[in-house]
Design a protein around this nucleic acid. Structure first.
Lengths: 350, 350
DNA sequence: TTGTAAGCGTTATCAC
DNA sequence: GTGATAACGCTTACAA
């Protein structure tokens, strides 16, 4: 299990390291016989090029940096899963950084990634990030960037996002069609692209069905701990109170569900809930609640694919643009939930 | 945002690169005044040592490799979160690899990590791994390893695990004390240390309360998709059927809950369920179900801490051993669930 | 106290 | 076709 270098092969074959290097990378101007010998020897010694030396040399490090706000978040961990799968297939390593939703840490992460000589960067912006100068520097050094989920159009790079508008529209319309009229919307920071797109989808659905857009039904979260309960309280104190919630994330959906539960409100009878969630989380919340499923893993896959194309072809890669991955509205039969609840309720009374 | 090297500082100050290098790392044998100048200049140019060059040189790369079976898994993503937090504080980067529960990929990951010259390795073994020769090679190269969660005592390295025995004992005892007698146990591959410890805890609790250990109530999963439903089916077909489930993971708890739900069985009335889960997942499953909370994040933190101690002190580090992080049995009032269900049930009938 | 030079593994640029 | 040599950024004997 010793680790051999190009030098060992050169010594073994009594040729120079440059010849070995050339043979290994299949240079034209090389004797086929020598090439064969080198290949055979490399095989035999189980030679693996040293990625560190390659990076130092300035050529490809075959590593991509991934910067996400939080690893321990279903959406991002699924996305990373997708990224890692593609990267592995195409021979890249993944170096992960967390920005912890902090602009400062995001900037530090970018620098660290650069000093590790990553071949490209996959970023989902922190909620604090409004200025993208730190990313401009990266592009200036010809290191490609692909943004995913939390994106910034002004950077002019390829972006991979869920169809937030479409998902929000479908969710809101579904709630309206099941008779809801005052649909509260719990979402995140208003300056984020995903927030705006979802809000737009929500408004478009209201408009289509002739419902008024009421600003007091919108609440913007800040990723603070235990912030959802108070938001729900405020909303439920409105008169008339909301009859449905549309939440922009797993975290908000869970918080909302908990808050409603604590207030002994039944879903779907007192209020309805529908959120952008990961499929697994949706199932956890309840196998009978409808949700808009975020294609987290696919977003990661597509983003990684685009980035590696950019790294490898540089020129021939697909043009810069925004790739929208469709979301899926899963409408589940909430009478099943009611059935289940009735059963449990009956059992409780015996 | 240009990136400066030790050479730039040397040129700026008209001294040699070696002097700069020594000043930067606070060597004794150096003129305090020179040192001050170098420091000042480094500060001004915002100098950052190039980690790649450091790695190539053979000294610290300030990167640690983390190999987990699956990133998109609540336990591991939380553990990684803990690892990343500690690593960041102590100035290390984290390079993540997924073994996908495959021995072959785990071996490949180990090699890749080594070729990236990681300073240490944090590993949770794949479920396929029984032979640890690939890790011996790493230790032979004096790269420290700390195992977490899925461990192998025969490797003789520090291990960080949850108190699986204690957690299983507490969970089982809780079920017994709430009147359950036929407690099924859904777990994972029997050769894994965590499986054995949990099974032992389960058996010990049965024994303490004079209940017979019935092998037919134990089911071993293999991480296959949709495997839990059939396992639950088999168990529910037993005569007498189980009156409780104790599951060894999030995934199994969720699968079990879904399967029971599909069969219209009420929890906690028809059967009880208690599982090793992440706190967030437990809350999702239901804010009213009891669970044994796995201290995922803390396991990650402690493991990272031990590994970095090993990397930095080598000799003065704490002795090799198994660190057991306590689990917490959270007993929640399942009458609240029942209350909620009753409410929903009543609403459903109107 | 500081400078010189070699070396980590690899590739690019020259020569031959 | 192949072989020296320098270079990437840094550390560390060894000299001075």
């Amino acid at each position: 299990m010793e680790t051999f270098t190009i030098k060992d092969i050169a010594r073994e074959l009594n040729i120079s390291t440059s010849t070995v290097s050339r043979a290994l990378r299949g240079s034209y101007e090389i004797n086929p016989e020598t090439k064969r010998l080198v290949m055979e020897c490399a095989e035999r010694l189980n030679y693996r090029p040293n990625p560190i030396a390659l990076s130092l040399k300035g050529s490809a490090s075959r590593a991509i940096g991934v910067i996400v706000p939080q690893i321990a978040n279903y959406f991002f961990s699924q996305a990373i899963n997708g990224i890692e799968a593609i990267a592995y297939n195409r021979g890249y390593h993944v170096i992960i950084f967390q920005s912890q939703e902090s602009y400062e840490r995001e900037t530090a992460n970018v620098h660290q990634a650069m000093s590790r000589k990553v071949d490209g960067l996959l970023i989902s912006l922190s909620s604090e990030t409004s200025d993208v100068a730190h990313l401009r520097d990266v592009l200036d050094k010809h290191v490609p960037i692909v943004l995913f989920d939390r994106v910034a159009a002004e950077l002019g790079v390829t972006q991979v996002v869920a169809d937030n508008f479409g998902g929000a529209f479908a969710a809101t319309e579904h709630l309206i069609q099941s008779g809801r009229r005052r649909i509260a919307h719990l979402t995140i920071q208003p300056w984020l692209s995903i927030t705006q797109e979802r809000l737009a989808g929500y408004r478009a659905a209201l408009e289509k069905h002739g419902l008024e857009y009421d600003e007091t039904l919108i609440r913007y979260g800040t990723f603070g701990p235990d912030e959802v309960g108070p938001m729900v309280d405020e909303l439920m104190a409105l008169d008339p109170m909301p009859d449905a919630f549309f939440t922009a994330s797993d975290r908000l959906a869970v918080g909302c569900l908990k808050a409603l539960h604590q207030r002994n409100l039944a879903i779907p009878d007192d209020v309805s809930l529908i959120g952008f969630t990961n499929l697994n989380v949706a199932d956890l919340l309840s196998p009978s609640l409808s949700t808009v499923v975020q294609p987290a893993q696919e977003i990661g896959q597509v983003a990684a694919e685009r980035l590696i194309d950019l790294i490898e072809f540089k020129h021939r890669a697909k043009p810069v643009g925004t790739v929208k991955i469709p979301t899926e509205l899963i409408v589940r039969d909430s009478t099943r939930l009611t059935e289940h609840a009735k059963h449990a309720g009956a059992a409780a009374t015996k």
